[in-house]
Amino acid sequence: MTDTAVTTTDARPADARTLVKVDDLARYFDVSPPLLNRLIERTGRAVVRAVDGVSFEIGRGETFSLVGESGCGKSTVARLIVGLYRPTDGSIVFDGVDMGQPGARSFRQGVQSRMQMIFQDPYASLNPRWRVTNIIAEPIHARRLLTDKAEVNRRVGELLTQVGLSPKDGEKYPHEFSGGQRQRISIARALAGEPEFLICDEPTSALDVSVQSQILNLMKELQRSFNLTYLFISHDLAVVYHVSTTVGVMYLGRLVEWAETKTLFNRPKHPYTRMLLDAIPDLEMTGRQRVPVAGEVPSPINPPSGCPFHPRCPHANARCAAERPVLRVFDDTHVACHAVEEGRLS
């Protein structure tokens, strides 16, 4: 992607380049105690705003990454997009089709089969009682892509080769593989459904670094060969820098900043993004002192008023505590911050 492509977001036709458009997406979870407890303890309902008003776009063939600390809602966004959760509010448009439309059920199923998900833990996401062949063939059967048994087997062998395993490995069970190899099996299973859009929720967090680089290289290679679009969820900023075209930073259920990767890492705008970048360990040993982020993420049940980051923000003022900032575009970056908007922070 070139630098100019970012600024012309509004000018280009809506569906030509954008594959996924998320608009004002929200998902609340009711975490209230049971009714009887509420009556006895005289407490009200408690609602977690896991995702609260998130909007972004993902272009075809791109990798959009969501970063943030645990509990910021990044995995919930992923699950909303694949349809594992229904949104409380807002819309998800996939390839021009609004997935939340009533009556679009059959259509939604058609759209959902064009996406697949890769999960974090390759030990939990593969059925230990199934042979690898059956694990990988499941999406093929589910979508009735192939019916002939020999053809299915041939296709599974091909997929195994594509992810760097041998077709003979199909006879084995998941426990016979290492963590990295299992993640390759998960990727092969995801590819079996011939998706265009892959949602990867921390795909390398459970792996050792040397294996992580193998998986990241494989994912990049597959993206090139099949023109895949990725939504990549991670808490590791270095990994995100390496894989993404565009990066979104989430904090307490809200998207605080999103921009093209280079722009975001070279010229971070939101104070939270700056803090996150300052907190990265220094591997070059330049002697740069890592500045720890002060404080901790507040509870999403009672998020702070106004900007959720204001209690930890060094630039906060009265307006930040009272008024919730909205995402606005400043030099190629979408950022939700009063300080940036008022020019107190450039």
Partner: peptide, 14 residues
């Protein structure tokens, strides 16, 4: 094999 911020490599050493 560790990705670095600011290092633009297409492929990581593996």
């Amino acid at each position: 094999s560790i990705p670095h911020i600011g290092h633009d490599v297409d492929e990581l050493t593996q």
